[in-house]
Amino acid sequence: MSSTTKILFTIKDLRKWFPTRTGLLDGIRRRQEYVRAVDDISFEIKQGEVVCLVGESGSGKTTAARLLLRLEDPTGGEIIYKGKDIAKVKERQIRKLRRHMQMIFQNPYESLDPRMTIYDVISEPLQVTNVFPKSETHKRVAKALEDVGLIPVSEFSIRFPHELSGGQRQRVSIARALVLDPEFIIADEPASMLDANTRIEILNLLQDLQAAYNMGILFITHDLAQARYLGHRIIILYLGKIVEKGNIDQVIQNPHHPYSKALISNIPVPDPDAKRERIEIEGEIPTAINLPPGCRFAPRCPFQFEKCIDEEPELMMKDGRYSACWLD
């Protein structure tokens, strides 16, 4: 990918803090606490690029994605989409933009309306957005179904979601996202609920469609093996902060941040004789309320020292990738 490629999204210091529910007394004393789900993250997504957002549950991956589509309103920061900050624009204007950005959800058993035929499911975005002439609807739905390999189209159009397998349903979700010719797709764990073989089919399909339509994809997953298979760049999140970002092969082969190291060294690999060095970390990811002043990972980090507890490290560039660690 050349450096002249068009930038789709520039995210600057994006922040989403959710207020926690407080009692009456706390309200009077003005003691409001926040869950810092996404806390000042910055990154870019270029056209035709697959960026993987990786982290454990509770790291803020899904919230970050929802902010990009403005399904949530950010607490702060900028979301610059093709030169325009959409972080604060009104809902009506956002609606017009959303046809360019679509989402594929994790669970194909829950994301399709059981009472709609496949044709209805896929044509609904066209009716809602109303950007293409009505006469094209049939052609566009057929094209989307063909693109995702649900052929013969006439046969699949009239079916209901319950008549399809998990993999076929996920293809329907992809077709629904594709039907508006988006420039950008967010895929939230699109293959994680599926069997190994179906998973590869879906990942291959996304790879082919991405190349054919030169789309930007934000691929959200907790599975680094899937991320590596599909992605060009990777962003690793921990408690709402980016701990490391860069070229995916570089980061996976030689992670800098201790959290990335721990995450990568604990991924199971399909080889019982593989000898790997493991980095063990204590405990589980805490909630993002009452965070310590220093590095968020310090309480679990096997390499922590004084500075980590006192001061929060910034994302710094080193050897072509960014990481936020005092050791780096």
């Binding site: 190994a196 291959n204 996976i252 080889d271």
Partner: peptide, 22 residues
């Protein structure tokens, strides 16, 4: 074929061909 269909973080990252059919 089943073992082959698992992407790994080790080794080369090649395209994997799924087992055809259901």
């Amino acid at each position: 074929m089943l073992i082959r269909s698992f992407p790994s973080i080790l080794g080369e990252c090649k395209r994997i061909e799924p087992i055809s059919g259901i």
